[in-house]
């Protein structure tokens, strides 16, 4: 049963969205070097096809949960890059009034239930979102993004089993970028094909090339449709690669320059889609350039917005701990 689409319009949207992530992250790294973006910074560069290919099937009513590497998920789900950048700058106009920072951006208005500083912290939240959708018969779907490293924590097992046995409308998406921080996957996990773990939970598993947004789109479409039909979760593994360090400033002694340049040179997801669109005659080189340029302007606007925004005032320190302040 094939997945329809993507339409030309969707293809162009996906192309722009991948650029939006790439340029946002490049700018975030630059601003981190300038001392404007503060705290830890984990970029999504290289993994753009995963977030974008999956969220192409979701509406604002659907939910996602995210990780410490969450900017790409936010942008894929339609978050505003201006408020994201302001959050990274620690400003009050940021999504979390500057209280969260890079590792904790959320936009509940578009169903983005939050980036997460705790590896595997999103499993329960996504499974609960699926439960709420099922109980309310709302037709919504929840997607749980997680890394290959998160597979080794208990919440992976507990929540996928629960989602499976209750047939919750959840798609568990493993972004297997082959490293957990500084440790190669095969040193800490014998089963490196995470999709095959689905059999332990009695749900379908699928593995796709996470550098190819069209493959991601196809597989995600099937998983999301299945969830919407009430048939339960899928474990979808996207093989991918982060082009930059675990965090900004990581000297990356655990992998070779050749490995990095092989991936970034031959498997760049944005270039892949751009080439495809040009071959299909959907996009000219000039149009591709102009998409990139307009995204670039959008990101520059986000930086200006962040830079001109005020810091939170002292009254924000104790606000939001509870719905109403307590002694």
């Amino acid at each position: 049963m094939g997945i329809k689409g993507p339409t030309t319009e969707q293809l162009l949207d996906m192309y722009a969205a991948m650029w939006r992530i790439r340029l946002f992250e490049e700018q975030a790294e630059y601003q981190s070097g300038q001392g404007k973006v503060l705290g830890a910074l984990h970029t999504y560069i290289g993994q753009e096809a995963v977030g974008v290919g999956i969220c192409a099937h979701l509406t604002d009513a659907d939910y996602i949960t995210s990780t410490h590497r969450g900017h790409g998920h936010c942008i894929s789900k339609g978050a505003d890059v201006r408020r994201m950048m302001a959050e990274l700058f620690g400003r009050v106009t940021g999504y979390c009034k500057g209280k969260g920072g890079s590792m904790h951006i959320a936009d509940f208005a578009v169903g983005m239930l939050g980036a997460n500083g705790i590896v595997a912290g999103g499993f329960g939240l996504a499974t609960g979102a699926g439960l709420a959708a099922q109980v309310r018969e709302s037709g919504q779907v929840a997607v749980c993004f997680f890394g290959d490293g998160a597979v080794n924590r208990g919440p992976f097992h507990e929540n996928i089993n629960l989602g499976a046995v209750w047939r919750l409308p959840v798609v568990y998406v493993c972004e297997n970028n082959q490293y957990a921080q500084w440790t190669p996957q095969e040193e800490i996990t014998l089963v490196t094909d995470v999709a095959s773990m689905s059999s332990a939970y009695g749900i379908p598993g699928a593995q796709v090339d996470g550098m190819d947004v069209l493959s991601v789109y196809q597989a995600a479409g099937e998983a999301v449709d299945r969830a919407r039909r009430g048939e339960g979760p899928t474990l979808l593994e996207c093989k991918t690669y982060r082009f930059h360090g675990h965090n900004f400033g990581d000297p990356q002694q655990y992998r070779t320059k050749e490995e990095i340049s092989d991936w970034s040179g031959q498997h760049d997801p944005i270039q892949g889609l751009g080439d495809h669109l040009q071959r299909e005659g959907v996009l000219t080189a000039e149009e591709a350039e102009s998409i990139r340029n307009s995204v670039q302007e959008e990101i520059a606007g986000a930086v200006r917005f962040a830079d001109e925004s005020p810091y939170p005032g002292p009254e924000e320190l104790t606000r939001d701990v509870f719905s109403t302040p307590v002694a």
């Binding site: 620690g90 400003r91 209280k99 104790t318 701990v321």
Partner: peptide
């Protein structure tokens, strides 16, 4: 420390 989760923004962290 203030009875709050640690805020991110440097101006708030300093107060906490």
């Amino acid at each position: 420390a203030a009875d709050v989760p640690m805020p991110f923004s440097p101006v708030l962290e300093k107060l906490a």
